[in-house]
């Protein structure tokens, strides 16, 4: 038990300590009075978000994008892990593992610079995709003013960024599967594909379940860093890309009010909490062995 002490202390100080500041969500926060002395405002801070008329759309975007991101990265992660597992030759395997992990190191700003090169060239016209399409006589698209495709573009970006990362997690899980498990399959003369699908994949369920439950808890949090770096203040894309976190960020910039930020943060947390409780209950009921809480 003593082993947990350092972590418990660190969490108490750096995670639970600042939570006292959540009172700001119920305050008419002002700079001079500070966090604990500002006057109470009841639910006024929550009103700002829920009466904005954009609330439904923003919440829908947040959920939709997160579901897309989570399912796509999980699926691609499992697939890549299964495929990597087929690769023989230590050096080759390690090489590919390194290569697909590379995007994880690339910061969101750089990702956004890339994306501009692909979707819109210098001065905003052309871009590699349009140039390529032009060769086949396909008319070019002004991507940065078409909100429609952006959920998919952002999902591709996430898959690109995290596919390798996820696959490493799953590959670690695959490697931990004892060889005996496969012996029966070998004796039956199952093909590699059958073994991957029938034996390995089900054994990845616990890992996937953990990732899923952890992801569900954050489903109301937008991926601020990536989305803001790519979309920024480009209003034409807001209909499909504006998530709670980007909205809050802009609100803070224009209003300079930490109360509103805290209020929305609290809503995100509570929704996440409720979802996690539900997910955990479902998990306990149907797949007890994968439960982490």
């Amino acid at each position: 038990m003593i082993l947990a002490a350092p972590a418990v202390i660190l969490l108490l100080v750096f995670a639970y300590g600042p939570m006292a500041g959540l009172v700001v969500a119920f305050q008419d926060f002002n700079v001079a009075d500070g966090v604990f002395a500002s006057p109470w405002a009841g639910l006024e801070n929550f009103r700002f978000f829920f009466t904005s008329g954009d609330a439904t759309r923003i919440m829908r975007n947040t959920l939709l994008l997160n579901v897309l991101f989570l399912s796509a990265t999980l699926a691609v992660g499992v697939m890549l892990a299964l495929m990597l597992n087929e690769i023989r030759g230590k050096v080759t395997k390690r090489f590919f593992q390194s290569v697909i992990f590379v995007p994880y190191f690339v910061s969101p700003i750089v990702v956004s610079i890339f994306l501009q090169a692909f979707l819109a060239g210098p001065g905003g016209r052309g871009g590699l995709i349009n140039d390529a399409a032009g060769l086949f006589g396909i008319p070019s698209v002004t991507w940065y003013t078409e909100p429609g495709p952006w959920p998919w573009i952002l999902t591709l970006v996430k898959v690109w960024q995290l596919g390798g990362y996820m696959s490493v997690i799953f590959l670690a899980a695959i490697t931990a599967i004892p060889e005996e498990v496969y012996e029966a399959g070998e004796i039956d003369g199952a093909s590699r594909a059958q073994m991957a699908w029938r034996i390995t994949t089900p054994l990845l369920k616990p890992t996937a379940a953990i990732l899923l439950v952890l992801g569900v808890g954050r489903i109301f949090y937008g991926d601020f860093a990536t989305i803001y770096a790519i979309v920024g203040d480009n209003g034409t894309l807001f209909p499909t890309t504006d998530v709670i976190d980007t909205y809050v960020f802009r609100a803070l910039r224009t209003r300079g009010d930490f109360g509103v930020t805290a209020a929305i943060g609290l809503v995100q947390s509570v929704v996440g909490f409720v979802l996690v409780v539900i997910a955990t209950m479902v998990q306990r009921r149907y797949a007890k062995e994968t439960s982490i809480l």
């Binding site: 501009q116 819109a120 001065g123 905003g124 016209r125 940065y144 979309v231 920024g232 203040d233 480009n234």
Partner: peptide, 11 residues
């Protein structure tokens, strides 16, 4: 008409 840059929104 291509007189101004088209990426004003995100540059």
């Amino acid at each position: 008409d291509g007189i101004i840059n088209a990426d004003r929104l995100n540059v």
